[in-house]
Nucleic acid binder design. Structure first.
Length: 715
RNA sequence: GCGCCCGUAGCUCAGUUGGACAGAGCAUCGGAUUUCUAAUCCGGCGGUCGCAGGUUCGAGUCCUGCCGGGCGCGCCA
């Protein structure tokens, strides 16, 4: 079944062409759901615009469109009216709505895999979507900064997959770059501490000591740095190639749980702070520079086996922790989707070579924006300019702002990785072969399997990186890599940006001590708060449902996690949002608990019905009656699920689905209050209303499922 | 300094490519429960859409200027 909106838009569009000829063939019928029921169900706003174009009166244009409407539309509608300056108001007939709702096939069993009869996209429109989301950093606990990317990305993936697109998830793990040198050095310090016989949690203590020393003034800081530098020098000298202490330590880490993620994170923070404080002092020489470590790794070679081993261990520990969070959140990411920055390592050299060669002279993309690569201040830069040569992006001095591809010291940057990643994601050996200038790059790409062949690439990354993605996309387009089928079609590159999570003080959400809020702590609290609500209700005789402990824990988990996810998704992702426990866990308003409650109420009707011998299988074919306004309003809304999903897939805005579900749940509540389902004496009416309940429950479950939220049978 | 985003009811936010009198929730006030989950429902109050111009049959939406806030701006990611 195609969406109501799609069908009506097609009909009106056809009618416009019949009335005014092929000249208006491409004109959007501007069909929209009516805001006010008194204007009908849908309205066409095209007549006013068309009138100007045709030099006619708007109402006359509207009349001609109406006159040309096919018999099919007449059959669907109870009325078609022209109103105001030239609105065409379409009111669907109750019979049509009832038969359409009645034609939705029954759900199978508990509703898993239920599509409510919604079609997948046609083959020609099927995208291969590469979806980049979550992107945690190695050696760091996931914190609220990762929450939005993970939740929004996951929902978008579910929606696109439901629509029938092929979704290739890519978890772009931050496992490369200078910061990684800090992680490895942190592990080295941990190894040395263990060798000295210090108890566990050394790095956390060291970090605390360093901070105390810094806070204590220059003398204390100096003394601390001196002690660490001297000890470090001695330890380096005792084990200069790492073979005696560091490497055995790492080997041991492979099988034993010597380091936790918190240890590794503390190590990173420690080295970060230590390097900063030692910079420019005489102690810096005795403390290894994390940049050197990172560079050594990037250059490759036999000397860096320890660094690589250390990285592997840090990645493994990080992923284990991430997977725990994903499992709790019900996010569809696993190790199989991890494609970290280091994955593109083999492409980096070739990518720089390619950019130098392909962009040695300015090259234009389909939008006329051009890119040119040249060395500037020792760094390899790609400058992005308009057709007239003026810069598209400017720095503080008004100078052209390039995308940096290679630092003057030879190291690559995240832009390099992203260009390489763009190539890998779009290219495909057969479907989308990309001609490259660099043989090195060509071979490296083939070595990675030739690429993913994406027709749409989505980056679910925060709004602050907007400039970076504008540059990246401009470069990828200028290179010509986005052209599909000889330029007939473009790969869609989209930055799915989102705002920050703010505390109630409207500043970035932090703990009281100013640290990032760890995701696992946040989820713990959500579940704990939800559990408290359930237990409070159970303690009151009037509200008691008689839940077992297991049931209460299950409800608390689903309500708590659902509340966090829903609170994030229901807001337009582009704006910052204020995090509030009370609001997200409220039972009224646009919240997960409200939706889950609506669903549980329906399930309750089924249970009651089953007690009196009503079976859903008996009423699967019962005609649906829409005599009550609440019944009609509910049925119409259920039928608008397909077009809502279409809109989410197109605009990548899960909040549209939330708005829909909130409205649907609200309409159900109204229906519930005014239309008794089981009480009525009329069996046909009872069957009809049970079917409406069934459709509503399935729409809620499907919609919430696309948001990654589980329903509860009772609450 | 330049660029991007934002400014809508006391608070948190919706508001499709410009469409009908600007909508929710919270808060507040008032109603509804011998009936399927009252964790609900129905109603009242509440807005010169930051300000000033402009384009348009029509502007919260588009253009210009100003005020206020956030973010970003070459060798971090």
């Amino acid at each position: 079944m195609k969406s109501l909106h799609h069908q009506l838009a097609k009909h009106v569009s056809d009618s416009m062409r019949r009335a005014f000829g092929d000249a208006v063939a491409g004109t959007d019928p501007l069909l929209a759901p009516s805001k006010d029921p008194k204007f009908g169900d849908y309205q066409c706003n095209a007549a006013m615009g068309l009138a100007k174009q045709l030099g006619a009166k708007p109402r006359d244009v509207a009349q001609k469109i109406v006159d040309a409407l096919s018999a099919d539309v007449r059959a669907m509608c109870a009325s078609v009216e022209i109103a105001g300056p030239g609105f065409i108001n379409l009111r669907l007939s109750d019979d049509y709505l009832a038969s359409l709702a009645g034609s939705i096939p029954p759900g199978g069993g508990d509703g898993d895999g239920d599509r409510l009869g919604i079609d997948r996209v046609e083959d020609a429109a099927r995208d291969t979507v590469v979806l980049d989301y979550s992107s945690p950093n190695v050696a760091k606990q996931m914190h609220v900064g990762h929450l939005r990317s993970t939740i929004i990305g996951d929902s978008i993936g579910r929606v696109l997959e439901f629509e029938g697109h092929e979704v290739v998830r890519q978890n772009h793990l931050g496992d490369w770059g200078t910061q990684f040198g800090m992680v490895i050095l942190g592990m080295w310090h941990a190894a040395m501490a263990r060798q000295r016989g210090e108890p566990p949690k050394y790095l956390q203590r060291a970090l605390g000591e360093l901070r105390t020393a810094v806070a204590g003034g220059p003398d204390m800081k100096r003394a601390y740095l001196k002690a660490v530098a001297e000890r470090s020098r001695a330890e380096y000298q005792a084990d200069p190639d790492g073979r005696r202490v560091f490497e055995p330590f790492l080997e041991e880490c492979r099988s034993a749980y010597l380091l936790s993620l918190d240890d590794i994170e503390a190590g990173y923070l420690y080295i970060n702070a230590l390097t900063k404080e030692a910079e420019g002092t005489e102690f810096a020489a005795d403390l290894k520079d994390p940049k050197d470590v990172a560079q050594m790794m990037q250059r490759g070679g036999p000397q860096d086996t320890q660094e690589r081993l250390a990285r592997e261990i840090a990645i493994r520990i990080t992923l284990a922790e991430c997977n725990r969070v994903y499992r709790r959140l019900g996010v569809l990411l696993s190790d199989a989707h991890v494609r970290g920055e280091s994955f593109y390592e083999k492409l980096l050299g070739g990518t720089i070579e390619e950019l130098k060669a392909a962009l040695s002279a300015p090259k234009s993309g389909p939008d006329g924006i051009r890119a040119v690569c040249r060395i500037d201040r020792g760094a390899v830069c790609v400058f992005i300019e308009n057709a007239d040569g003026s810069p598209v992006f400017k720095g503080p001095e008004g100078e052209s702002l390039p995308m940096l591809i290679q630092k003057s010291d030879g190291a690559s940057l995240y832009a390099t990785t992203d260009v390489a990643g763009g190539l890998y994601r779009m290219a495909h050996a057969t479907r989308h072969p990309i001609r490259l200038s660099s043989r090195t790059l060509n071979e490296a790409l083939a070595g990675l399997g030739g690429g993913l062949g994406a027709t749409r690439v989505l980056y679910v990354v925060g709004t602050p990186q907007r400039l970076h993605f504008q540059m990246l996309f401009a470069v990828l387009r200028a290179l010509g890599w986005t052209q599909l089928g000889g330029g007939r079609r473009e790969v869609r590159l989209e930055h799915v940006s989102f705002g920050s999570v703010l505390g109630e003080d409207r500043k970035m959400l932090r703990t009281r001590s100013g640290e990032n809020v760890k995701l696992k702590d946040l989820l713990d609290e959500a579940v704990a708060r939800a559990e408290e609500q359930v237990r409070t209700a159970e303690a009151e005789p009037d509200r008691r449902r008689g839940f077992s402990d297991d049931e209460m824990r299950d409800i608390a988990h689903k309500v708590g996690i659902g509340a966090v996810k829903y609170a994030d998704l229901c807001q337009n992702r582009n704006t910052d949002y204020v995090f509030s426990w009370d609001k997200m866990l409220a039972l009224q308003g646009n919240t997960a608990p409200y939706m889950l409650y609506a669903y549980a109420r329906i399930m309750s009707i089924y249970r009651k019905g089953a007690e009196s011998g009503v079976r859903t299988s008996d009423i699967e074919k019962a005609p649906i009656q829409l005599d009550h306004p609440a019944e009609r309003a509910l049925a119409l809304r259920v039928l608008q699920l397909p077009e809502t999903i279409d809109a989410v897939a197109e605009n990548l805005l899960p909040s549209l689905l939330c708005d829909y579900l909130y409205d649907l749940a609200g309409r159900f509540m109204t229906f519930y209050e005014s239309c008794p389902v089981l009480q009525g004496g009329d069996p046909a009416l009872q069957a009809s209303r049970l079917r409406l309940c069934d459709l509503t429950a399935r729409a809620l479950k499907l919609g919430l499922g696309l948001l990654g939220i589980s329903t509860v049978e009772r609450m």
